[in-house]
Structure formats: structure tokens, C-alpha cells
């Protein structure tokens, strides 16, 4: 029962982290493209706060980030299987996301991908395997 509760909590923090990432990047582009008032960027600060809190709760406190980025010598056979599975799924998901973004930019014939979006994709690449582990595993 306790384990189910911790799994549910993990999932909520992971979802919160990715939603705040998407919301933050989207708001940045909305302000940039539609010339919204800069006061909207105050909302960005709130979103960033949620982002960093959820990052800490979802990946650092739970040690899922460490599990995925540690040497395989420090993992037992089950953990290695879990990490390899997570990397496999993460690779697939990340590839699809990147292709969609690249095609969307190509179809829209807009400017090339800038630093903010690239930073978001870099973050996604680093945290997706840990997110998949955290989605399926109980807290370490």
C-alpha cells in the first residue's frame, strides 16, 4: 500500500516536471511571437519554481537520475535490466519528439530551432530514461 502510494507520488512529480517544462517553453514563445506584455514572464518565474521543485522531487530525492547515470558496475542485474529497458523506450520517444519538432519547423518554414527549445530537448534527453524508471519503479 505504501509502495503504491510512493509510485503514484513519483508519477505526479514526473508529470508536473514535464508539464512545467512544456508550459515554460510555450509561454516563452507566446510572449516572443505574439508580443505579449513582458509581465507574462512573471508567470514564467512561477513555472520555473514548479519545474525545479518537481525536478528535485522526481529525480534527485528519489535517486532515479543517479540510477540511470551511474556506471553499470554499481547496478545489480535487475537494475541493469530496468535501466536498459528505460533507455530503449527513452530513445524511441525522444526520436519521435525530435522528428515531430523538426518536421513542424520545416513545414512552417520558420527560423531554425533556437536555444530555448534546444535546451528543452537537451533536458528531455537527459531526464527521459530516469522518468521511465521512476514511472515504473518504487522509490529507491
Amino acid at each position: 500500500m505504501k509502495n503504491q502510494k510512493s509510485k503514484k507520488q513519483n508519477r505526479i512529480w514526473i508529470l508536473l516536471n514535464f508539464i512545467s517544462l512544456i508550459a515554460g517553453i510555450s509561454l516563452f514563445y507566446m510572449v516572443k511571437i505574439y508580443h505579449w506584455p513582458l509581465s507574462y514572464l512573471l508567470i514564467e518565474i512561477v513555472i520555473l519554481a514548479i519545474f525545479f521543485i518537481s525536478l528535485n522531487k522526481a529525480f534527485i530525492v528519489t535517486k532515479f537520475w543517479k540510477m540511470v547515470h551511474t556506471s553499470s558496475k554499481n547496478l545489480d542485474e535487475r537494475e541493469m535490466q530496468v535501466v536498459l529497458n528505460a533507455l530503449r523506450y527513452a530513445y524511441g520517444i525522444f526520436t519521435v519528439v525530435c522528428l515531430i519538432i523538426i518536421y513542424a519547423f520545416a513545414i512552417a518554414e520558420s527560423k531554425p530551432i533556437d536555444v530555448v527549445l534546444a535546451g528543452g530537448l537537451l533536458y528531455l534527453a537527459h531526464t527521459l530514461p530516469a522518468a521511465i524508471v521512476g514511472w515504473n519503479e518504487k522509490v529507491i
Binding site: 545489480d76 542485474e77 535487475r78 537494475e79 518504487k138 529507491i140
Partner: peptide
């Protein structure tokens, strides 16, 4: 036995099949 204590939990709940070595 040289594993993480969480793995022992998974073994006991029969949620993980050990390798031959384990």
C-alpha cells in the same frame, strides 16, 4: 548475495526472475 535490497523485495514478491548465477 550481492544485490540491492529492493531487488530482494522484488524476488520475494516473485515480480522478478533471478539469473542462474543469482
Amino acid at each position: 548475495i550481492g544485490v540491492n535490497f529492493q531487488t530482494v523485495g522484488y524476488l520475494e514478491r516473485e515480480e522478478y526472475n533471478p539469473s542462474l548465477d543469482l
